[in-house]
Amino acid sequence: MADIARTAPPETRRKARPLWLRILRNPGGAIGAALVLALVLSALSAPWLAPFDPTKMAAGRPLTAPGAAHLLGTDELGRDVLSRILFGARLTLQIGAIAVGISLVLGLVTGLSAAHFGGWPERILMRATDVLFSFTETLIALAFVAVLGPSLTNAMVAVGVAAVPFYARTAYATALGEVAKPYYEGAIAAGAGHMRLILRHLLPNVLPTMIVVATLGLSNAILAAAALGFLGLGAQPPQPEWGYMLSAGRDFMNRAPWLMLYPGLAIALTVFAFNILGDALREALDPRSEGR
């Protein structure tokens, strides 16, 4: 029965497909990638696509309903909503990417170090995270902006930092499960050092979960930045930013529902696109899905 060890076919593994190809083979991944690409392209080419200057007041009559002149209508100051959404994509995507990037990096550093080192570093890092967790994210973001001063850049940093406890907790919990597995101890026994253990063993096994968390966190970040904008601490008027447009449109909800509808749809579409792309990415990163 010793031949059981040799039952697997002897041919070597076929060459691994590149990551992007594996994403695109997944229908969700293809749609998500197409949508994200379209978003980025329209943000980049907004100056050519937009029919009006997004900050120009009285481009049309205030609160014009969507029609031939203004495809998505105008707002209370007569600015073209379509133009503002196209230009807004630049700001909103930036906010989302930078804020999520900050949360992801800081959260991973905190969570993985805590799980790997254990003992005192773990206690200090995770208790600090717990303290931050006990405040609502908006409050932390507000405190940050209060110290740094109101500006769009500071709002991005504030939103990113405020979400770190959530990312750190998730990374920590996932990493704890990996640290307890024998392969991790096997790597320790094989003589791997701290950096190698964290970067080569822990990070790749935690990343799939964190990608899903990040795609969900993107919507949170956009909305949190909008909340700051609403309070006058984020995007400064007349900069077009989706979250700000959404909250500003609230005052005219009954008379001009398109003011909320289109920015809201834009946010929803963005979040949806990143979610399905993130899902496909997670699956493509799973070694078991390879070759399918």
Partner: peptide, 20 residues
């Protein structure tokens, strides 16, 4: 540590799933 090595019980968890 190089002089003492371990083999674990669970063959499914004792190898990093992302390492050939």
């Amino acid at each position: 540590r190089s002089r003492v090595q371990m083999v674990f019980q669970d063959p499914f968890a004792s190898l990093d799933p992302r390492f050939a």
